[in-house]
């Protein structure tokens, strides 16, 4: 508990220090990283803990962002109020979809969620009356706290960091709770988990819905940060990016999710100096990371510390009979 609070405070301190010392451009990227980080912590529930491969995470982020965008621009709601149905609605939607879909595993689930994401984009691009079609929705109002508008990159970053820290903290509480151990038990051996009395379907649906809730929070932040959403922002490529962030950071860990989100947000921007070939190098570097750091950045730290079993695996082993 103390360690977790320390991590939370550490994140806020580092983030706050960065927010005072870096350029506007870096601040923007930090905001993007924080938003992606929230989304990836969510994905960690589904993939990191339960092992559900989701290639549709961006669709949930998009659903949240679109509900907020529609309610604020067409019904005139405040973004705070609109974020409630945006987040809860997305979570419910994920639970409803997850219930039939999560019987699938491995690449079957991967392709089913991919299909969902593609379908989401088709609907968002063609339901013009509601979503504005491919032109998207512009002029989404930004957030303000007690009359103070979070319009600049810096105040927005402070806000995003607080949300990131809180949601990270909640995630770590869930991880070490009975439910978190049940999730990992389901990942490691479904049959065994079922035999110990864990309701496998309920755990899977819960993790999936939880991941969608986090994605929706990220979506609401995205919409209020950029003030614009369009179907392109939530394509399946974005889902693959989220999954890559989790793998690169280190699956199954919250710190890994944040590190991965940060690294993959900054990497293509750093590579811009290479000119036209920067994306070609980006692909190669990704492949290199996957080959040489199979357990992600966190795995690298663990290897440094020479501490053999990572805490999560140990926890999972305990939960198994």
């Amino acid at each position: 508990m103390a360690l977790r609070l320390l991590g939370l405070v550490g994140l806020l301190v580092v983030g706050f220090a960065l927010s005072l010392s870096v350029s506007e451009y870096a601040l923007r990227l930090l905001n993007l990283a924080a938003i992606a980080g929230i989304s990836v912590i969510g994905l960690n529930f589904a993939f990191g803990y339960v092992g559900l491969i989701s290639l549709g995470h961006a669709a949930f982020m998009g659903l949240g962002a679109y509900i907020l965008a529609i309610l604020t621009t067409q019904a005139g709601w405040s973004p705070w109020l609109a974020s409630v149905p945006a987040i809860l609605g997305t979570g419910l939607c994920a639970a409803a979809i997850g219930f039939p879909l999560l019987r699938l595993k491995g690449h079957y689930l991967a392709l089913a969620t991919l299909g969902l994401n593609v379908s989401f984009v088709i609907v968002a691009a063609n339901w013009i009356e509601l979503t504005g079609g491919t032109n998207g929705i512009a002029k989404i109002p930004g957030l303000s706290i007690a009359g103070y508008a979070l319009s600049g990159e810096q105040p927005f970053l402070w806000f995003a960091l607080v949300i990131l820290a809180c949601l990270g903290f909640v995630a770590s509480l869930i991880q070490s709770s009975r439910h978190g151990r049940a999730m990992m038990a389901v990942r490691d051996d479904e049959t065994a988990a079922a035999m110990t009395g864990i309701n496998v379907t309920a755990i899977k649906v819960a993790a999936f819905a939880l991941s969608a809730l986090y994605a929706a929070v990220a979506g609401c932040l995205f919409a209020t940060h950029v003030n614009f959403v369009s179907p392109d922002d939530f394509g399946f490529a974005q889902s693959i990016t989220f999954l890559s962030m989790l793998i690169v950071g280190g699956e199954g860990t919250i710190v890994g999710a944040i590190l991965g989100a940060t690294l993959l947000t900054f990497l293509p921007e750093w590579l811009r100096v290479l000119g036209d070939s920067y994306l070609a190098f980006f692909g190669l570097m990704m492949l290199g990371i996957l080959i040489f750091l199979p357990t992600g950045i966190i795995g690298l730290f663990d290897r440094w510390r020479r501490r053999a079993p990572a805490p999560e695996t140990a926890a999972a082993e305990v939960a198994q009979p």
Binding site: I53, A110, G283, L290
Partner: peptide
């Protein structure tokens, strides 16, 4: 290099190399 990796790593690895292939073709 990826033959013993989990499914997800392979999916992402092939996506990554796909980005490289596409951009090399563009260049």
């Amino acid at each position: 290099p990826l033959r013993a990796s989990p499914i997800v790593t392979v999916i992402i690895g092939t996506v990554a190399i796909g980005i490289t292939i596409q951009n090399m073709a563009l260049l």
